[in-house]
Each structure stands twice: as C-alpha cells, then as structure tokens.
Design a protein around this nucleic acid. Structure first.
Lengths: 125, 125
DNA sequence: GCTTGACTTAGAGCTAACTCCAACTGATAC
DNA sequence: GTATCAGTTGGAGTTAGCTCTAAGTCAAGC
C-alpha cells in the first residue's frame, strides 16, 4: 500500500504519516526499489491504533516510548503494560472530568431554557 | 481580591489570568486607584467556569464568543444557549470516543497480562 | 526618601503537533 | 525522450495556548 492509500483508508494526511515515522511512532516501513513507502496491513493496524490513541490525547512522546519499548522485544512486556495502564488511568480521570462538565453544561443549558421562557431574566455569566 | 489571590484560589497563573483578559474571556475587572486589578467574587466564579470549560477543551475562541454575546445583553440568551448546546454535543461525542478508547486500552492491557503470565508470547504492537 | 515587593504593560519566546514548501526522483503514458 | 504525476527529503511555517522577560509604577515599612 502506498502512502496515499493508507492516508485515505486511515484518514490521516501523508504529511502526518511521514511525521509520525520521523518521530518514531512507525518504523521499518518497506520501500519499493524506487524508495517509495509500501505499507503492510499490519502497518495499517498500527496506524489505526496510533490514530485512536492520538484522538483521545495520548502524546506523540508517550507513543514514541511505547514503540521504542516494543523494538526491544519481549523483555519490555511489563514496561509496555505499565505505560498503557498509566495512560489508561489518566484517560479515566479525564472521562470523569468530562462527565462532570457535561452535567454542568446540561444544567446551565436548562437554566438558559428557563430564562428564555420567562422572557425577563438575565444570567450572571 | 488581587490577581495573586485569585491565582491561588483558582490555581491559574497570573499570566494566564491576564492572558484571558487580553483575549476577552474576562472583562470589566475593577482596578484600584493605582491601577491594580481587584477581582470580585463574581469574577472568581466566572474564572472557575472558564477553567472548567478549558479543562475539557473548549477553545479560547468559543469562550470569547460566549462572553462577547453576554455583553450584548438579554437579546443574546438564545444564541448563548445554542453555543453551549453545540459545545455540549461535541463534548458528548468526545465522551463516547473516550469510553471506547478506554475499553480498547483495557482489553489491550488484559492481553498484556495474559502474555506476561504465559511468558512466551509477544504481541504485534 | 529609599528599599522592597507585588503589581502593571507590551511584546518576545516556547511547545506540541502538525502542515506546507521547494527541490528533486522514479515510473508510466504517449 | 519528454510530460506528468505520485512519491521523496529537509526544513520552514503555522496555530493554540500559554509563559516569560524587561522596564516601569505604586504602596508600605523602615
């Protein structure tokens, strides 16, 4: 698969794919004789994983560390597990925060709805 | 209240408070004769609100628009309500995404735990 | 009246994560 | 064999959101 095919399939720009490679998030991509990247299905799955993790805010740096550990082989299984567990905890914290803020917004919107109905009130902010 | 008191109370740096003011997120802060900012309780509540919204990713730009509408008075109640509702929807989408990714991470961590126990397996990424 | 310390401003600098650009190369169509 | 087009590289530029710096002001304590 060429970079533009992967780009379409994963909805990530070719520039970003090359950037991820430069940053060590993707490594050992095959090349054709002419030097053109030739992604495997496995590469694609990894890219999807990266996309998923990036979409919830895992940093390039954390992901770089994860794949760096990967390259060191089986002896880093525990380290990788722990790295993921740490990120998981942070995501969980953010999830709770998001839920609370959502509730707060819902309440605020309901206050607005009342104010709009009554046609007299103004809010403080 | 001085800027450093608000800073401590809200856990936001004075620089950030001044930055928010420059960006129009906070307006009409009282000043002492000497030109020093003198925040009211109400200002503090607004700052807490901003902090809460920023913590889940609402942009400075969106918040600026919200407070801009505010300054135009009661006739913008509906517009403000709708702005909040739009942001709420986006937060909801992100919440779902976060939940899915959390599940995915939990699954991956469980796969790691199995691999670590069996002491033979390696994963694909 | 001088020092100290918290404040003020305008504006520069920083970081993460892209995104774009210029110059080049290699394969394909005609 | 030359135009086209998709790819390549290194490096510059962009954006959001702070964060820091320099130079200055003001009030309080001694």
């Amino acid at each position: 698969m060429t970079i533009s095919e992967v780009s379409k399939q994963c909805n990530i720009s070719p520039d970003t794919l090359r950037y991820y490679e430069k940053e060590g998030l993707i490594t050992d991509i095959n090349r054709t004789a002419g030097g053109v990247r030739d992604y495997t299905e496995q590469d694609c799955k990894q890219i999807e994983f990266i996309k998923c993790m990036r979409s919830v805010g895992l940093s390039i740096e954390v992901l770089r560390k994860y794949f760096e550990l990967f390259k060191k082989g089986k002896r880093t299984l525990k380290a990788r597990r722990d790295l993921l567990a740490t990120e998981r905890e942070q995501l969980h914290t953010r999830l709770t925060e998001l839920q609370n803020t959502l509730n707060r917004l819902d309440y605020k919107i309901s206050v607005y709805d009342k104010a709009i109905k009554s046609k007299t009130k103004e809010l403080k902010f």
